[in-house]
Simulated assay, not measured.
Amino acid sequence: MQELRFDDRVAVVTGAGRGLGREYALLLAARGAKVVVNDPGVNVRGDGAGPDVGAAAAVVAEIEAAGGAAVACTESVATAEGGRAIVESALDAFGRLDILVHNAGNVRYGSLRELSYADFDAVLDVHLRGAFHVVRPAFPVLADAGYGRVVLTSSIGGLYGNKGVANYAAAKAGIIGLSNVVALEGAEAGVRSNVIVPAAVTRLADGLDTSAYPPMGPELTAPAVGWLAHESCSITGETLVAVAGRVARAYIAETPGVYRPSWSIEEVGEQIEAIRDTTDSWILPSVPDGHTEHLRKSFALATEAAQHVG
């Protein structure tokens, strides 16, 4: 099996000072990429004293000690200015940008009865707005160069929800929609965008009982991210799950549903099991045009029914 390498490629990895991001940065660098190690050095809430260059600098030192090339950047993805500075650090240091991995994250817990607006915004600022803050300046660079790989980070909390983290769940669900748009708008320019849904025991798991977990180190997730970041990546607009050694695809599907020319509330109730029947579900990839295909298939049911009545 030929080794997949990143020689002459430049990657930005956000939240790369610790945990998953560190593992991504080390792997890309070990395979030849020049890496911008971005991390402001704050706590898991994202509100600690900073910026602290120590976390990012330590990863840079590891990369350089192994013969690789990297620079540290302590700007925060939580602002548009920070996002631009992160992208510019790649251009300033290495003259180009090929790969963007948005991994930075924070967590602030609170039930729907308790969660403050400030804590809701603070999490969206890093995860979802943070993704846009780096995608927005990076996308023109990638598209104009005719090549790019974007990897954005969602979560099982974004796919399925979890108690006490409405902010995190909303942000992580939004990541999937953002990646789909990057994939669509980047398709003709050689820019591919996908989502990783990782699960690993890192400092974000502090306070959780992980004693019954199987091995779940960040190194089990990094190869999937590496492949999504590589030029051989053959997919775009998709979501890969990487948890405890399992790599899988997550996808959105629709049931064929039930067509009627008109509906009452009662009829929806009567038909709900048929509406929910997953037999022959539709899987509509975002690229080349899942949006249009959704409408086309939906409208076709109405047209076919009208022709049958006629």
Rank of each mutant, 00 (worst) to 15 (best):
M1A: 13
E3I: 14
E3W: 11
T14H: 06
R18L: 12
G19E: 07
G19K: 07
G21A: 10
R22F: 00
R22D: 03
K34W: 07
V37M: 04
N38Q: 07
D39Q: 04
P40G: 08
V44N: 10
D47W: 10
G54F: 05
A56R: 05
A61Q: 13
A70Q: 00
V71E: 06
C73Y: 11
S76P: 00
G82Y: 04
G83Q: 00
E88I: 05
S89H: 01
L91R: 03
D92S: 14
G95C: 08
L97P: 07
L97V: 09
D98Q: 03
V101T: 09
R108P: 00
R113W: 12
F120D: 06
A122N: 09
V126R: 05
H127I: 12
R129G: 03
R129Y: 11
F132W: 14
V141L: 06
A143N: 11
A143S: 15
G148D: 09
G148L: 10
V151T: 09
S155R: 02
S155V: 01
G157D: 15
G164E: 03
V165L: 09
A171L: 00
A171R: 06
G174H: 03
I176G: 00
L178A: 10
S179R: 09
N180E: 15
V182N: 00
A189G: 08
G190N: 09
G190E: 09
G190C: 10
R192P: 08
S193N: 11
S193F: 09
S193P: 10
N194A: 05
N194L: 06
A199F: 13
L204H: 07
A205M: 15
T210N: 14
P218M: 06
P223Q: 08
G226Q: 02
A229M: 00
T239E: 14
L240C: 07
L240F: 12
G245R: 01
A248Y: 00
A248W: 01
A248G: 03
I252C: 10
T255M: 02
Y259A: 03
R260Y: 02
E270H: 12
S286L: 05
G290L: 04
E293K: 07
E293G: 01
E304G: 15
A305P: 06
V309N: 14
